[in-house]
């Protein structure tokens, strides 16, 4: 479904003869992977590894300087106009910071209804009914639809973000650190919700995270990124434990043991 081919991306101001481009300034370098229907690929990596940039490239927000992003066989950045809008409809997002990913002046209904208003011609009543359904699907109540973001907790806001992401029944949702801004309890609740939605909607996830445990609970495939490159890509999450890559080892060692002083015993 999603094919990322040798994608390269670099940040920085436009260079000129006064400021020559530095060698090797790529944030993404030759990134290649595939993602199938109803599956979940986790992109692991420390901050600065380029995983959020990869997410933005896949979402169609940042055109890569090299390579291609194919979605259902179509180049995401070559399409234009209405065709592109329809292609993008199937890729939605949940961002890390739940507070800044909702407009503080809108009600929950308006937030969740925005994608619906953009793609479907619905009457006000139908829209209200649909947003109500979506709210219930993510574990909130219909009455919450009239509240504004400052009346919700972080976990509830993240549920609203998820409701907005699934509103158009997309084929792929990019989850950019969706639980990192929440406490442990809400992390696991949100992960449960995501797993449940994946089963009921048949949606694929590109799960960007630095939390190896969260990745384990949700994903069937893992990729590890380090300094803009994918250093480990495998069909079984357990393979991480046999990897000799320093980046992978660092990630594994960062997991807190159940009891202080214990060595890690996940498997």
């Amino acid at each position: 479904m999603l094919q990322v081919r040798e994608v390269g991306y670099r940040y920085g101001h436009r260079r000129n003869w006064l400021r020559p481009r530095k060698e090797n300034s790529f944030v993404l370098n030759q990134v290649t992977f595939e993602l199938n229907h109803s599956s979940c690929l986790s992109i692991l990596g420390t901050s600065g590894a380029g995983k959020s940039t990869l997410g933005r490239v896949v979402l169609g927000l940042q055109k890569p300087h090299q390579g291609q992003v194919l979605f259902e066989g179509q180049d995401l950045y070559a399409a234009s106009g209405r065709f592109r809008k329809n292609l993008r409809r199937d890729i939605q997002v949940v961002f890390q910071d739940c507070y800044s990913s909702v407009n503080p002046l809108m009600t929950a209904d308006q937030i969740i209804g925005e994608p619906l208003r953009n793609y479907e011609r619905l009457s006000a009543r139908e829209l209200k009914r649909k947003t109500g359904e979506l709210l219930e699907k993510v574990g909130l109540s219909v009455e919450d639809g009239n509240k504004r973001p400052d009346q919700f907790s972080g976990g509830q806001l993240q549920r609203i973000n998820i409701a907005r992401a699934i509103a158009l029944r997309p084929k792929l949702i990019v989850l950019d650190e969706p639980v990192s801004s929440l406490d442990r309890v809400h992390q696991s609740l949100i992960l449960d919700l995501l797993a449940e939605l994946k089963a009921s909607l048949g949606v694929s996830y590109l799960f960007i995270t630095h939390d190896i445990q969260a990745a384990m609970t949700l994903c069937d495939r893992v990729a590890v990124m380090d300094r803009g490159e994918i250093v480990h890509l495998s069909d079984s999450p357990a393979s991480l434990w046999n990897s000799q890559q320093t980046a992978v080892k660092n990630l594994i060692e960062s997991v807190l043991p159940d009891h202080p002083g214990d060595r890690l015993t996940l498997f």
Binding site: L61, E114, N118, L168
Partner: peptide, 26 residues
């Protein structure tokens, strides 16, 4: 810089709609 602008873009809002719905009210 706030992600709700990016989220609006991803949910299919045109630049004009983003300015009207998200930027001017704020």
């Amino acid at each position: 810089e706030r992600s709700f602008i990016a989220a609006a873009k991803i949910s299919g809002s045109s630049s004009w709609a983003i300015i009207r719905r998200h930027i001017i009210p704020n």
